[in-house]
Simulated scan of single mutants.
Amino acid sequence: MSEQRPAFGMTLKALRHERGLSQADLAAKLGSTQRHVSFLETGRASPSRYMIQRIERELALPVGRSQVLYETAGFASPYKCRAEDSPDVVEALDLIEKRLLAHWPFPAYVLDKRWTILRQNAPGKLFLSGFTDTGNQPPNLFRIFLSSAFRERILNWREAAPIFAARLYREAAEDPELADLLEEARAGGLLDGLEETFREDVPVFVPVEVMAPDGSRLRITSLLGQLASVQDAVIEGMTIELMVPMDESSETCLLAAGALSQLNAAE
């Protein structure tokens, strides 16, 4: 247990700093004292399961972060560490695909925390046709977005690029693989000059304008979501991305393409 305490203390301190809390602030939330929080962070005191549950609840921790707390304190986590290909996770993905993606009339995807495409509906496959041939590797949505071939289809890259970049910066802060992709995007000059883009009148939405295969202009944005009541770190790290048309012509075009893709899939 003694070897585990410093790791727990460092984790707790990092969580406290992320929330912008002093030791006294955290102690007040936990119904404890600043002295006890200090002892927990330095390893002079060991946390109980009850204390970890309090921290988990009061800081509204995601499952993955809660697992780290239990493990660094030397306790078995109440949450299972499932692999992405475990039967439970595959069953959950099948449910999302069957109950949600299959009924969304526009492109829709399930992405893991590194934005690898795990599931997609028929309109989604059609939308990315020609960009997902990655051999044995599953396609990655950010790599597709940042590819020169896909960028050629984006008609307002200067306006849309900061939207992609913001998502990439946010995710790269917590994932080394995406951090590598961020550096790759920087090295390729894809993010050059984004900080110089200035708009006096920022709209409610910044749609991405995409050239459809038939030459029509699509104006789309995305709805990002996760399932509630998730108690698994792998599923919790997944994002459901539903593409939304921003005008009637884009809706008509996507619906027509979706209907065709469904017909082809049925055949």
Rank of each mutant, 00 (worst) to 15 (best):
M1F: 04
S2E: 15
A7H: 09
K13H: 12
R16H: 10
G20F: 13
Q23M: 14
L26Y: 13
L26R: 11
G31T: 07
G31F: 07
S38K: 09
F39E: 03
L40S: 01
L40Y: 05
R44D: 14
Y50F: 12
Y50C: 07
R57P: 08
L59H: 08
G64R: 01
Q67M: 08
F75M: 00
S77L: 01
S77T: 03
A83D: 08
D88V: 14
D88H: 09
V89H: 12
V89L: 04
V89E: 05
V90K: 15
A92S: 11
I96E: 11
E97R: 09
K98G: 15
R99L: 03
L100N: 12
A102H: 07
H103K: 12
Y109K: 13
L111P: 02
R114C: 00
T116M: 10
Q120P: 04
N121Q: 12
N121L: 09
P123L: 10
G124Y: 03
G124Q: 10
K125D: 13
F127I: 02
L128F: 15
G130E: 11
N136K: 09
N136R: 15
P139A: 15
F142V: 03
L146C: 08
R151I: 06
R153V: 06
I154L: 07
L155K: 09
P162Q: 14
P162A: 03
A165D: 08
E171I: 07
P176V: 06
E177C: 08
L178P: 00
A179N: 09
D180T: 10
L181V: 14
E183A: 11
E183M: 05
E183Y: 00
R186G: 02
G193I: 02
G193C: 05
E196V: 05
E196P: 01
D201Y: 00
V204R: 04
D214V: 01
G215K: 05
G215Y: 06
G215Q: 04
R219E: 13
I220L: 13
T221Q: 05
T221E: 05
L223V: 11
Q226M: 04
L227Y: 15
A228Q: 14
S229H: 10
A233K: 04
E236T: 01
E236D: 09
L242V: 13
L242R: 13
M243S: 12
M246W: 04
E248I: 09
S250R: 09
S250C: 10
C253Y: 06
A256Q: 03
G258I: 06
S261R: 13
N264R: 05
A265S: 15
A265F: 05
A266F: 04
